[in-house]
């Protein structure tokens, strides 16, 4: 199946390629980076790109390319972590309220309604403002609201699924609720969740970078794209390369996830699937 589908979707391939590249770079950061990302060399500060330092150096003389390479680790792994936690909480709550309905459903959905009334980033600011800036608090702040989206979409999918004949027929055969949920309901909604999570990854990378930029996420001098932007903002007019490179890194990462998400959606959509298969 996959052999037939994938070559038809060039954007998906390109997104996959970009993403693989990013993941490889972040995994092999210590081999890819030519310098120690935290090595300060004051005499070489604010070097222009080219020469010994491919992307130049920042205000402390650190190699920007090396910092971006190591920063990929933080940005990607934090985003993956947040999305996975959101996904697990959201799917658990969404499935429970969609499948069983009743009071549990009413309660959780009203809670979701309330939480969705807060703008994401403002709520995260509030949480970190109270708890203090650190990586665990950053994750918590993004999870506190992030799961609601997954819960709501999962619930919708489960609601429409549980009325279908094949679920009812398994009930008639004697399959219990737990069996039906784990063997039929969740496997059937996984494709949708994969698309949702992939598209959400880009969003999370942006949120993490934004919070780090505001000094509320990953702290200086840890190499992270958002905090690099923050450190470089004073040189924006005199030495723009300091801020352009991490900015581009963020754009490329978000772009890669969005391409992948869109591509996956096309592939997993049953309507396009039928056409491609035949």
């Amino acid at each position: 199946m996959s052999k037939k589908i994938f070559p038809k979707n060039r954007l998906l391939i390109f997104g996959l390629f970009l993403l693989t590249l990013l993941i490889m770079v972040s995994l092999l950061a210590s081999y890819v980076a030519p310098f120690d990302p935290n090595y300060v060399e004051v005499e070489n500060r604010l070097n222009r790109p080219g020469g010994k330092n491919i992307l130049g150096t920042d205000g402390y003389g650190r190699d920007i390319f090396s910092r971006i390479v190591f920063g990929a680790r933080f940005s990607l792994s934090l985003a993956v972590l947040v999305v996975l936690i959101n996904l697990c909480i959201g799917v658990f709550i969404g499935t429970a309220s969609g499948f069983f309905g009743g009071a549990v459903d009413e309660l959780t959905m009203r809670l979701v309604d309330i939480l969705l009334a807060f703008p994401n980033i403002i709520f995260a600011l509030l949480v970190i403002g109270i708890l203090g800036p650190s990586i665990p608090n950053l994750v918590f702040a993004l999870v506190a609201l992030g799961w609601t989206n997954y819960a709501r979409i999962t619930r919708g999918l489960v609601l429409s699924l549980k009325e279908q004949d094949f679920i009812i027929s398994i009930k008639a055969i004697g399959g219990g609720d737990f069996y039906i949920i784990t063997r039929h309901v969740i496997p059937s909604i996984i494709p949708f969740l994969v698309v949702l999570a992939t598209l959400n990854m880009g969003h999370m990378i942006m949120s993490i970078a934004a919070l780090s930029f505001l000094g509320l996420g990953v702290q200086i001098p840890t190499p992270e794209w958002g905090s690099m932007l923050s450190e470089g903002k004073q040189f924006i007019f005199t030495h723009p390369h300091v801020i352009i490179s991490p900015g581009l890194a963020i754009i490329i990462a978000v772009f890669a996830f969005n391409l992948l998400g869109d591509g996956l959606r096309d592939v997993l959509d049953p309507r396009t699937k039928e056409i491609i298969k035949t």
């Binding site: 004949d165 094949f166 027929s169 004697g174 059937s188």
Partner: peptide
Amino acid sequence: FRTRLQIIFQDPDTVLNPR
């Protein structure tokens, strides 16, 4: 009881898990 009584539905296309 679920093993003693079985039900057959109207539309055969929707009764089996499509995956």
